[in-house]
Amino acid sequence: MKKLEFKGLKFLAFVVLLFIILAIFDFDNISNVINKFAIILYKIIPIFVLVIFVTALINYLLKPKQIMKHFGKDSGIKGVLYSLIGGIVSHGPMYAWYPMLEDMRKHGLRFGLIATFMYARAVKIPLLPFMIALFGLPFTIIVNLYIIAFAIIQGKIIDILITKPPK
């Protein structure tokens, strides 16, 4: 069984220190910050549950060899397509998806596909009607088509920049 090793403890210590400093020098606003913190956390807890479930499902259904086949070095256009769709349909903040991506990366997920997934998340399906209402249909179509194109381009460039030597 995987061992529990906390990551980002120094980063968390830095943020706690920042909160303490704010509490000393800007006491009025610290309660707003803590309130905001609680609201954000409350909103993303269901996403965390979803992420754990999706990660477990991927671990259970896809064996490392299959992950390599769909998202590894030789995954080709299918890998790009899956990453694009995954990025577009994924909800919540990016950091909520880090554990799943990290797990898949350990099984061979290409860095380029992580970049494609991350950039494709800029296409927000639930917000499309809102975007159309505020900025119009042509704006929405053009911007989102460019996002998809650049998600693919970024993935390709990252794959060129980060290539691991064959073992």
């Binding site: 968390l12 905001k36 954000i40």
Partner: peptide, 21 residues
């Protein structure tokens, strides 16, 4: 396994939420 992987990243996630707030 997925839960352990997620919990190990909790300090990072909490720190990000703190900064975002």
């Amino acid at each position: 396994k997925a839960t352990i992987g997620f919990v190990s990243l909790l300090p990072t996630i909490l720190a990000v939420v703190g900064l975002v707030s």
